[in-house]
Design a protein around this nucleic acid. Structure first.
Lengths: 152, 152
DNA sequence: ATGGTTGCAAAGGCTTTGCAAACAT
DNA sequence: ATGTTTGCAAAGCCTTTGCAACCAT
């Protein structure tokens, strides 16, 4: 996937909704796809400041829904208070493993899981649009730390 | 499961943390387990008012984390802005199917899914604590409506 | 030219917190 | 009696919005 792809998707979405591809929206789009991790509005705002692209928070908040509706990003795990997003264009669907101790997040995809989800949706008469799976536990490292602490 | 069970769990949690079972906390606990659906702080507040149990919002907000930590409830699907909870004590783990059109939520559990999640956690060295699965799509009814609209 | 877009700052909505009075043990 | 808990109202934090200036076509 090269950078033109998501841009095309976004432009097509904008055009079909009588919206324009402005400098601000372009900068937001690029910032979103420049990262591989999750982000929230504030994070995006800071990244763009670093990059001398001055886009206001208001514009970011107004643009994120367009990116969601165009299918390029989606809201992510919501354990935290803030709204987190992640880009999904060209990404296989995946699940998140989050360590409740250190907060580390592992992303993975699994074909069997994908199939099962599709079947469950179908069984309930749902036309599947999206899914999100969050698994919480203690990662291997934190389990070791815990053990050490217990010993001391 | 009878009502004493969740109460015992909560009391044990409170005691082990040097907290007291007050009238307010008891009322919140009962309100939480009186419903089978998801709820948020405000909803809880309104239910208790109806029930002439006057508990302030502040106390509700202060109590919910205790219920989460004691394993009795957990945060639920977070598509909305507010924090939603659901009780999990005595409930099998389940996944949510949410219709993106009418908002209807179907809860179900699936043994195969459960097994798969456990395996995925294990494969990554995680000790599983909890998981949540949200599936979004259009429910059967809304698919029909959509079709009707297209025809007209 | 014109209708969408932006930034600012103010408003909004949910959640948290300081504090004195009330409470549980 | 003593440390905890409560309600209130104020503060906090993230997000949304009104509006005049600005921009893309």
């Amino acid at each position: 996937m090269n950078s033109m792809d998501y841009r095309k998707v976004f432009v097509r979405y904008l055009q079909s909704h009588d919206l324009k591809l402005t400098r601000s929206r372009e900068a937001i789009l690029d910032a979103v796809f420049a990262t591989h991790s999750h982000f929230d509005a504030e994070q995006l705002y800071l990244w763009m400041r670093e990059d001398k692209k001055n886009v206001s928070r208001a514009t970011i908040y107004r643009t994120l829904p367009y990116l969601v509706h165009s299918g390029l990003i989606r809201k992510s795990l919501c354990d935290e208070h803030r709204e987190e997003y992640e880009h999904i264009y060209g990404h296989p669907n995946h699940f998140h493993l989050q360590c409740s101790s250190c907060g580390r997040i592992i992303e993975q995809s699994d074909e069997e899981l994908e199939k099962l989800i599709k079947r469950l949706a179908k069984n309930n008469g749902f036309s599947l649009q999206d899914y999100s799976i969050g698994i919480k536990g203690r990662c291997s490292l934190c389990q070791i730390e815990k053990t050490d602490k217990d010993k001391s």
